[in-house]
Design a protein around this nucleic acid. Structure first.
Length: 559
RNA sequence: UGUCCCAUGGUGUAAUGGUAACACAGCAGAUUUUGGUUCUGUCGUUUCAAGUUCGAGUCUUGAUGGGACAACCA
């Protein structure tokens, strides 16, 4: 292994990279093998994306491999629906796995290893009930008590365990336990349960088994079978590591090692699968892929790109201390990506009419607009202009503050790519809302240039009222009102922190004609407004856009 | 009154006993046919105490604060 390239490298490395480089240099491992081990009992969320980027990213960086392994040891919670969605999401994120495995592939091996542990006197069949086991486990501060069945003979244990497998017992009647230490300060070491009886069909093995291994017994052994060198998981498993090591050592099998990092937390959202499932099941959101959900499919539907999510995961880094990342970091990554890639178009979300009184009534002309000022290769397009346009409600004010550079009576403003116009008057409805604004244009400023060189501070976007299309636009706000929704007040739950206004549907938005063929997941920057993506439910005659994120806005801040 | 993990600007993440740094956010300015982008400048950091050392963010001990652990979940 070359070491000189590494030492001269000034790049910052996280603790996992340091561990891996040490292991590679010392010869502890010759190549690295990682794995991403989801349980197929829910959809992947942004926290999983972090784990995916770490596991796949590390293997890629150091020339190793990553397996996808489904941790499917609990048939009552798992389903192929989740298997499929998980695979889709990983691919969409841009990763491909070396091997696709299932813990259930290893059930036979796991069973025979369990028999080996029995033969070594390191496991026993326990007849205690769930309640008795719980009671005798003790507490974190008091030692537990040995089970009365703890000293059964190896022969009895072997026979009983075989009978468990054969279906001779009902759910809960017996368990197989590792024989470690009921007084161990680490609760996980107090004779942890290795197998429980569950008479339920498994999504892959059907009714072949009625005993299923627990996570602690299955996970490390699966890692070992796959010769995983670095088994990377979140912090809450660090207390399981002694047990992880105990099984591997007792079985004398390939020594995989577990390393833990701090899970991702993001402001104003929840990240637990249980809570996400609850939001879906109880109808607080429209589904797993609701654009307000922190799921991968939710972000996808909202308009996020895989690149922006990967970039985000790199940005936030990896360490062992608890963290809470501001949601805006996600938006930053998105803007950074889409600024360079999304074509610009003009759209008016809250339309009011703008009538150019000195422009010929029946005239229409075509103007040229740049598709992406960051990327000349995206070319230009034609947009039409006439005497009646739509502009944004916010872009007109009757009594404007002095730093308001938009439309207000007597002030000149540029209509993007069109003309300089001067606002003359407005019309209101009975409630006093402005419905129509009048102005006059300067014919010498076609395209938006000022031949006399006068400076125009404001430029606003517009849509030709005589040549535009209607659309529905979903505006999303944070799903939760508080930064840490999990921390609910006394007697309340995270549900009480839900934002009742997290979704606003805008009807009758006006879009430039070029958008008529937009297909689901197409992404655009609506000039001055933000990034928008076409929703799955969008149809040619009923366009629906999702606002992915706004543009940075230093104006509303100034106000 | 247990065991384990963690503690660096507002938020994250580096610094491997030798000048505390980078990103984002904030603030100020420049540029701009998007109040976007881009560019420049700027603000601001080692939880506390003792110890080891020529020298400590880093090592030791203690304290404080935060987190994890008592599913036949993962």
């Amino acid at each position: 292994m070359e070491t000189n390239t590494v030492t001269t490298d000034r790049e910052q490395k996280n603790f996992l990279e340091q561990i891996i480089e040490n292991d590679l240099q010392s010869g502890k491992v010759s190549a690295i093998q990682t794995r991403f081990p989801p349980e197929p009992n829910g959809y992947l969320h942004i926290g999983h994306a972090k784990s995916i980027c770490i596991n796949f990213g590390l293997a890629k960086k150091y020339g190793g491999k990553t397996n996808l392994r489904f941790d499917d040891t609990n048939p009552v919670k798992e389903d192929t629906e989740y298997v499929d969605s998980i695979k889709e999401d990983i691919h969409w994120l841009g990763f491909d796995w070396a091997g696709e495995y299932y813990a259930s592939d290893y059930f036979e091996q796991l069973y025979s290893w369990a028999c080996e542990l029995i033969k070594k006197g390191l496991a026993y069949v326990d007849d205690q009930t769930l309640e008795q086991i719980r009671e005798n486990r003790g507490t974190v501060q008091t030692p537990g008590k040995n089970s009365p069945y703890r000293d059964r003979s190896i022969e009895d244990n072997l026979r009983l365990f075989k009978e468990m497998r054969e279906g001779k017992y009902k759910d809960g009647e017996k368990t197989l336990r590792a024989k470690i230490d009921m007084a161990h300060p680490n609760m996980n070491m107090r004779d942890p349960i290795m197998y429980r009886i569950i008479h339920a069909s498994h999504h892959r093995t059907g009714d072949k088994w009625c005993i299923y291994p627990m996570y602690d017994y299955a996970h490390g052994e699966s890692d070992s079978i796959e010769k995983v060198t670095h088994s990377i998981c979140t912090l809450e498993f660090d207390i399981h590591r002694p047990l992880y090591d105990w099984f591997i050592k007792s079985l004398e099998i390939y020594p995989s090692h577990q390393y833990e990092f701090a899970r991702l937390n993001i402001t104003n959202t929840v990240m637990s699968k249980r809570k996400l499932l609850q939001l879906v099941k109880e109808g607080y959101v429209a589904g797993w892929d609701d654009p307000r959900m922190p799921t991968i499919c939710g972000f996808r539907r909202r308009g996020y790109t895989p690149e922006s999510i990967r970039r985000f995961c790199e940005d936030i880094g990896v360490a062992k201390r608890d963290n809470l990342i501001d949601y805006s970091r996600l938006e930053n990554s998105l803007r950074d990506d889409l600024n360079k890639r999304a074509n610009r178009v003009m759209a008016v979300l809250h339309p009011i009419k703008l009538i150019i009184d000195n422009y010929p009534t029946n005239q229409t002309e075509e103007l040229e607009a740049v598709n992406n000022p960051e990327d000349e290769s995206k070319g230009k397009r034609k947009i039409t202009f006439s005497n009646t346009l739509y502009i944004e409600q916010d872009d007109f004010m009757e009594n404007a503050p002095k730093k308001y550079f938009r439309m207000t009576i007597g002030q000149e403003v540029r209509l993007r790519y069109a003309y300089i116009v001067k606002c003359t008057s407005c019309e209101k409805d009975e409630q006093g809302n402005v419905t129509t604004v009048h102005c006059e244009y300067d014919p010498l400023t076609r395209g938006g240039d000022t031949p006399d060189g006068r400076k125009i501070k404001g430029t606003i976007h517009w849509v030709d009222a005589n040549n535009c299309i209607d659309a529905k636009v979903n505006i999303f706000d944070r799903l939760f009102l508080t930064e840490k929704p999990d921390e609910a007040e006394e007697g309340k739950t995270f549900l009480d922190n839900l934002n009742p206004n997290s979704l606003t549907v805008l009807e009758g938005c006006k879009l430039e004609k070029s958008l008529k063929d937009a297909k689901p997941l197409d992404k655009f920057q609506f000039e001055r407004l933000g990034y928008f993506s076409v929703d799955y439910d969008s149809r040619e005659d009923n366009l629906i856009f999702n606002r992915t994120a706004t543009l940075k806005d230093s104006w509303t801040k100034q106000k």
